[in-house]
């Protein structure tokens, strides 16, 4: 029997393969903790806010991220497509690679993404050869437009950024998982390993988390707990869930057993 392992079930983003399905946000850590947290979490991708990556300030976040990690620079701070595009181009100039997570936010209170501007930015950057992962509000119509715009994955929010409230948008994320032919990466709002596990069980391709780990008493152990939960959820998804109350009970004797010819 072939068990599912990380090695035969990679996450593929625009042809790039990753064994880990745990994307770590680096925004809320002490820089000195990042490496340990990444190791415990087994992450291979780390988001960084480009606005924090200033080459000539006394401490540069880029120096604290292990070299074998793929950088996923985000455009946080952008209020519209144009600003996001400029930040992405700057990211490439600074040598942060071709991956970019589009974040376009026009609300300083809830930090909810602006899907319309996100689609515009995705279209421009995908044409310029970026591997675009847009952060979005889980709306099917917008997600389809992101596919057409050339996104490499779609990153719907589970709940508002930093809220640790879990999969508040669960039913809509399910729709994206069913309908969208790209990896669905649940971003924002995941507050605990059990919620990350649930997202993976539903069929999400990966989970991104930051606040939940950064605000734990022991960040490294929490990163490990997330790794295990994400692996468990993924394995459960691939193993195909059996009877789950959510799906309604299945009768043990066939309902159509009366048919004779």
């Amino acid at each position: 029997m072939n068990f599912i392992t990380n090695n035969n079930d990679p996450l593929i983003l625009d042809g790039h393969t990753f064994n880990s399905r745990f994307i770590l946000g680096s925004g809320k850590f002490s820089l000195k903790l990042i490496q340990t947290v990444m190791e415990y979490g087994g992450s291979e991708i780390a988001t960084i806010a480009l606005r924090r990556a200033n080459a000539d300030s006394p401490e540069n976040i880029l120096d604290f991220i292990p070299k074998n990690i793929t950088l996923l620079p985000n455009t946080s701070g952008a209020r519209n497509a144009e600003e996001a595009v400029r930040i992405a181009r700057l990211s490439r100039e600074l040598g942060c690679g071709d991956f970019v997570k589009i974040e376009v936010i026009h609300d300083s209170k809830y930090l909810l993404p602006d899907n319309e501007e996100t689609i515009k930015a995705t279209k421009i950057l995908a044409k310029e050869g970026f591997i675009v992962l847009p952060y979005m509000y889980p709306d099917l119509i917008s997600a389809r437009k992101l596919v057409d715009a050339g996104a490499a994955a779609v990153m719907p929010l589970g709940a508002p950024i930093g809220s640790n409230r879990g999969l508040l948008t669960k039913d809509f994320i399910k729709i994206l998982i069913e309908e969208i032919p790209l990896p669905i990466i649940v971003d924002a709002g995941i507050g605990s390993p059990s919620q990350a596990c649930e997202a993976m069980e539903l069929g999400a391709s990966a989970v991104m988390a930051n606040t939940a780990i950064a605000t734990a008493d022991d960040c490294a152990s929490m990163a490990k707990a997330f790794r295990l939960a994400i692996e468990a959820g993924r394995t459960a998804y691939l193993a195909k869930l059996g009877r789950v109350l959510d799906k309604g009970a299945e009768a043990s004797s066939p309902l159509t057993g009366f048919l004779q010819d």
């Binding site: 002490s30 924090r52 200033n54 300030s57 006394p58 401490e59 701070g77 952008a78 144009e82």
Partner: peptide, 15 residues
């Protein structure tokens, strides 16, 4: 155990 941050902003109109 907190993190000093020197830059948190990109003035995109200057890019």
């Amino acid at each position: 155990n907190m993190q000093p941050v020197y830059t948190d902003y990109i003035n995109t109109s200057l890019l």
